[in-house]
Amino acid sequence: MKLSTTLLTLSVLAAGSALAEPVAPSDVQFDDYGAVAESLTGQPGDPAKGAEVLSKRSLGNCVACHQVSALPDVPFQGNIGPMLDGVGDRWNEAELRGIVSDAKKTYPGTMMPSYYRVDDYVRPGNAFTGKAAEGPLDPLLTAQQIEDVVAFLVTLKDQ
């Protein structure tokens, strides 16, 4: 009995995720201020995974440019961009999703990379090999990683 309930739950979950194809980078809907209202995946983000994306060099490496007091164990946080403490007060979820997906829509000309955009680069490379990219680019982060990062950022409140 218990087992079959579990199986049932699992199959419902599987069907749910099959329905939710992530929004492709070129289909993301930004409003006039650069915000993205709709989730890119339809799945809730995981703030713990988001924190990992912020910290890891091989993922978002956001701490290369930003300091985040909530991540005291992450060494060498840079200071190119503003401190992220309190961003959950300054911006709502849609605005944060917009900034992380393509910050240039919120801040024209910003130095912050566009994490969910694949077109219009000058001499795009094959990751960090220095060689030319082969075929279409993958975005810097996946749709779910963007959602995870947003889920973490909304927790960064001053109070």
């Binding site: 060099r57 490496n61 701490v63 290369a64 440019c65 060494p75 060498f76 946080q77 840079g78 200071n79 190119i80 130095m111 990379p113 566009s114 680069y121 000058v122 001499r123 795009p124 490379g125 990219a133 680019l137 810097l140």
Partner: peptide, 25 residues
């Protein structure tokens, strides 16, 4: 001043606008 690559960074982004700042370590 050309912003190369998928990170779209120019020499000037790092060495003119941000010299003195830390980029990670």
């Amino acid at each position: 001043y050309t912003r190369y690559g998928q990170l779209e960074l120019s020499c000037a982004n790092c060495h003119e606008d941000n010299y003195g700042n830390m980029i990670r370590a």
